[in-house]
């Protein structure tokens, strides 16, 4: 079958999709967007978290056909999404400038915070956590620790013990508040 939907604001079309394929498989293997991760493919780990019409979902549990005509947001589109939401160059984005060319990639504030706080180790959980954390900060710009824990409880991380992930979300929230 053919599936037509929007990914990170761009129209996409996938052909020869087998009915059993998940949205995750189509993103990774047919659209060349492997950022959403395949840690469990059982809906337990959250590493494939994407936004489907704005709502965080496990892409491994969404049949590709269910995405027909809908909007999908993945980690690859996070920086653009944050920029559109901010409606221009934020203080945080301005601060992101680095002289090293490897570091001049446009990042969403939550992405920058994950790097700065040491929340990334192996990084396999990171894309899903970023999508979930960005969604949290979108509707709750000043989350308590309990809020953060609740919002990220569907995302497993095996490396960090979560402390630095909490730090990163707090940091992103604090920077956003400072930039207001």
């Amino acid at each position: 079958m053919r599936v037509t939907f929007t990914v990170n604001g761009r129209p996409q079309e996938a052909d020869d999709v087998w009915e059993g394929e998940s949205l995750l498989y189509v993103l990774r293997e047919r659209l060349g967007l492997p950022g959403s991760k395949n840690a469990c493919e059982q809906g337990e780990c959250g590493s494939c978290t994407v936004r489907l019409d704005g709502v965080p979902v496990c892409a491994c549990l969404v049949a590709a056909g269910q995405a027909e005509g809908r909007e999908v947001g993945t980690v690859e589109g996070l920086a653009d999404h944050a920029a559109r939401r901010a409606g221009g160059t934020s203080a945080d984005r301005a601060r992101q400038w680095r002289p090293d060319p490897a570091d001049t990639v446009e990042l969403a504030p939550v992405q920058r915070a994950f790097i700065d706080a040491g929340a990334v180790q192996c990084g396999f959980c990171t894309p899903g956590l970023l999508v979930a954390a960005d969604e949290l900060l979108e509707h709750n710009p000043d989350p308590s620790d309990a809020d953060i824990r609740e919002a990220l409880s569907g995302n497993l991380c095996r490396c960090t013990g979560y402390e630095k992930i909490l730090d990163a979300v707090r940091l992103a929230a604090a920077r956003a508040a400072e930039g207001d």
Partner: peptide, 11 residues
């Protein structure tokens, strides 16, 4: 900071 950090947060 990690040299692979940017690649890891952008997917």
């Amino acid at each position: 900071l990690r040299p692979d950090g940017t690649l890891k947060v952008t997917g």
